[in-house]
Write a protein that binds this DNA or RNA. Structure first.
Lengths: 162, 162
DNA sequence: CGCTATTATGTAGGTGCCTACATATTGTCA
DNA sequence: TGACAATATGTAGGCACCTACATAATAGCG
């Protein structure tokens, strides 16, 4: 038994990160094997742009559940790679409308089999891990109901009572 | 239902990361409320040094399940903060022996109640999320048995057969 | 219409980990 | 004993996100 496991619940944050990093690294490796330069964070944005053709930074952020800053930064590297274009929205100069370029669409088509394989691998792993995905949903819900910070503070106050 | 949940298993890596980041941020906030400057990554190293008094970079890396590079970098910021000292091992000049300083011990003592509160909060969340910690262990085991990369490749080959 | 509040997105710097590569030390073997 | 393999740790750069702060545009109100 290694350290994270020996620590029970306390190492949960660290374990989540390491699992995430491991999965990301494996995905990167898969792209690399196909000879494709691809940033993992592009997937969410590209997938959304495939589904809806155009979207603003804010819309993507909301849809993906990340900050607008992350979307903005991702957008910049996507543009640099020629996969996405960004233009001001006609009805509101603050908004930037993002679209896949033809090259972006080609890339997505090319990666479709790989993304399918990702899906299959992920479902397999979910089954092997006793339904981790449903548990993640529950964890997200639990933290939305009461954040770790709030919980920590409650226990800290209790300790202070002694 | 937001995007990560709507994507089922495929967004597992991203979800793990976001949960991890959220928990880290909450922990950071708790330290901040106590007026303590503390890096989350210090916890694992400091806890080990409390338990065993001295340890090498390699030992800590193995115990914590992270790379020696991460330990080395953490050690450097801990030293800079005056919480840890590092000296060459008497029996092997390559090895660096790390120890908590008196200041490091004081810091740990001071944080004990907070770490206790972390533990309690984490166990609470584990219970609320239907035993996520055990599922994480199963996920770790599943990925050790067959990595995401290997699984992706298997499915990719299958797709190629069509 | 002018002012203020709100909204949209960008810049800067940071987090905790990783891989690739590098250097120095120790161990082993002929 | 010397050469080479193995071991220990460090440097550099990267990843995908975050918060704080900033600027510009729009909405709303008197």
């Amino acid at each position: 038994m290694d350290y994270p496991q020996s620590q029970g619940a306390r190492a949960i944050g660290a374990r989540l990160r390491r699992l995430s990093d491991a999965i990301d690294a494996d995905a990167a490796r898969a792209y690399s094997v196909l000879g494709v330069r691809f940033e993992q964070r592009w997937f969410g944005v590209m997938n959304q742009l495939l589904e809806r053709e155009a979207a603003t930074v804010g819309q993507l952020a909301e849809a993906l559940g990340i900050t607008h800053v992350s979307v903005s930064q991702t957008r910049q590297s996507l543009e640099k790679a020629g996969l996405v274009t960004a233009e001001a929205d006609p009805s509101d100069a603050r908004k930037r409308r993002l679209r896949l370029t033809a090259e972006g669409r080609d890339m997505a088509a090319r990666l479709r089999p790989l993304w399918r394989a990702f899906d299959a691998a992920a479902e397999e792993v979910d089954a092997d891990a006793g339904g981790i995905v449903a548990r993640l949903s529950e964890l997200e819900k639990a933290l939305k109901q009461a954040s770790m910070f709030e919980r920590i503070m409650v226990h800290l106050d209790k300790a202070g009572d002694r």
